[in-house]
Amino acid sequence: MSESNEEKKDEIQLIFGDKRLDGRRFDELRNIKIEAGILKRADGSCYLEMGKNIVVAAVYGPREVHPRHLQNPSKAVIRYRYNMAPFSVEERKRPGPDRRSVEISKVSREALEAVIMKELFPRSGIDIFVEVLQADAGSRTACLNAASVALVDAGVPMKGMITSVAVAKADGVMVLDPMKEEDNYGEADIPFAFLIRGGKIESIALLQMDGRVTKDELREAFKLAKKGAMEIYKLQKEAIMKKYISESVENG
């Protein structure tokens, strides 16, 4: 695929000099707001805004698994539900799971399974529910970030934290954390999720891609994602600290 910077028919211009459509630099994240522990009945919860994405995550467990036959005698089972509200997108989305949300639930669950210490809770289950209230590209990454904070808030033992961010290729340029226009009219979208431990990125927990990029572009995307993930990690950490800070002040 050869790239030309001229506008093609029924496509929109996404890059203006060194700025993007919404005025961000190529390596700039959208505004992020995270709040931990917003739901009283859940063991752990999190509210997260990432640009125009709004998601809420709730964690229950470890608890007994029903139906019984799903129990695993050697480790906990993890259930992750990614769900979009009917009003989360411009055209009403039919409620309930569809092909897309089932797939996202599966890959996100597998990303989290790598960090949760399942062996500590045989025969039990950990349920993670993430609801997308408003979607604007990269909602799976927003959901993973929220789920990760909610899991920590629930006191679930984990090897580290999951931080997720997407990189897109728009008008031939790699851009961090794409918004809707860049996702729809861009050439590729690559969501990443990293395991962060000891303040460093340890491994990749999720990597998907649609569209096409060259080897060098993927390297570039990886570099951008790593930088973005570290920024998000700081915000996740801050959100949890904020909720529990009263605990650490003058304790005995």
């Binding site: 467990g61 808030d153 629930a154 090897k159 580290g160 000891g198 304790n251």
Partner: peptide, 26 residues
């Protein structure tokens, strides 16, 4: 060979032991 925290909690560190006092959990 490195010791990491696995839960959210308060770090209780002495010369002979490191433990985490949990803040949440079942």
């Amino acid at each position: 060979g490195k010791v990491y925290s696995k839960i959210l909690g308060l770090l209780d560190k002495t010369e002979t032991s490191v433990r985490i006092i949990p803040l949440k959990g079942r």
